[in-house]
Design a protein around this nucleic acid. Sequence first.
DNA 1: CTCTTTTTGGTAACATGTTCTAAATTTCAC
DNA 2: GTGAAATTTAGAACATGTTACCAAAAAGAG
Lengths: 240, 240
Amino acid sequence: MPIKRSALARETTTSEAETFPQGEPLPVGGRREAGKAERRRTIIKAARELIRETGNAGLSMRALAARAGVSLATPYNLFGSKRAIVVAMLQDVREFHELFSARRPTDPIDRIFTALDTAIELYLGDPPFYRTLWTAVFDAGEGVREEILGPKGDAFWRGLVDEAAAAGALREGVNPNFIGQYLDFIRRSAMFEWAVGLIPAERLAATARLGYALILAGAVTDDRRANLVAAVADAQSCLA
Amino acid sequence: MPIKRSALARETTTSEAETFPQGEPLPVGGRREAGKAERRRTIIKAARELIRETGNAGLSMRALAARAGVSLATPYNLFGSKRAIVVAMLQDVREFHELFSARRPTDPIDRIFTALDTAIELYLGDPPFYRTLWTAVFDAGEGVREEILGPKGDAFWRGLVDEAAAAGALREGVNPNFIGQYLDFIRRSAMFEWAVGLIPAERLAATARLGYALILAGAVTDDRRANLVAAVADAQSCLA
DNA sequence: CTCTTTTTGGTAACATGTTCTAAATTTCAC
DNA sequence: GTGAAATTTAGAACATGTTACCAAAAAGAG
């Protein structure tokens, strides 16, 4: 049983006057923390390159350390485990949020589906890379899964459902937290099956959409139900 | 990349006149296959004991071989991998089918829920054991997941949905294969979250039932929908 | 600048899943 | 029964994730 380290400490940067791109945490530490952040970035970059070049199997800690030009111990000091490195890569959602905010629709239910499509397009834009990541997520041992699974890792997706509830799109008495949970189940299961090769890329989006539509059709108010029944039929015809 | 062996060869027994309990495959091989089957059973039994005594972490291949009184290579010859052993344990559904056939209701939708309840009661009857198994299932590397995930491993559950479709319980145009797939997603996700500790035992059954009810409420004919909406409310109140 | 604390480098070590080899054993076919 | 084929055994070996240890280097405080 591995010792639980304080992995994933927040990134920090130097206190010198620099311009930080959006999304960077505020610079709190001194040069020491800056060096750590730099090394963390180097390691992540090396991991991306290794996955791209050699595929899933090439991402061993020794190869990663060599590629990043650090010692084997350093990734463990900075991340705690190999899984934490993979999770850090998967949680780098900057690109997703850029894509999503560029097309964010107003209807809350549409927004849920659009977010789903956006994420899947992102993944399918670099299959070997994201396939490796999703596979590694489910290979994670105990104690680390909570960081990407569970409510914390899915906060964004739960928020979308909350917005739909606030807009009165959900049937009375239906708890949006639960709906969000099942949408997460669907999304994760679909990603997992795609990652291990049970679902081909062409069917991934429709598979996830159909699951979403089924769940939402069971939860939505009657006036919106027709739309979702249509979405079910739509997704099914894509899969036929 | 591990070599794919012909793991999980069917069990066989001697050709002598014995009385076989139901569920045993017909005796095709000779003494050789009988010995293999015997050894397989010994290994599975040793694995059960090891999990019960030492928990998840105690199930190492070396410990297992020692406990079963065989060499380290033998489990690999007979099963192919550690995962295959775990999967074999989880797929030993004799007990489940006994429990389920004792209470099989006539309504096809009821049958789906009853099967779910039965499986969960079985798992919750021996949490440390089944928790270990379910955890190990998702720790499985590539190439073996197909044996327990995917349509093959879930044939029984898909059959229940097919029965419901044959009985006219599903809305026209809804493909029962897809419904079955999403019910599998829900069930597996719920079991997984329970296995890793994200869902407590008291909430497992209601969590799975609510997901089932939501999916089915989106797929069922209008005359049955009221029942499932009620099931949603029911399960939600259990979780409140 | 000097001293202290933190972190890395480098390396060995450990546990584990898995494969491999050769010898011994068992089963099968005749 | 006898020879051929399959299987087990014992042990070594390999790759990997992970931890431990210590010396060197870097950063911070004064």
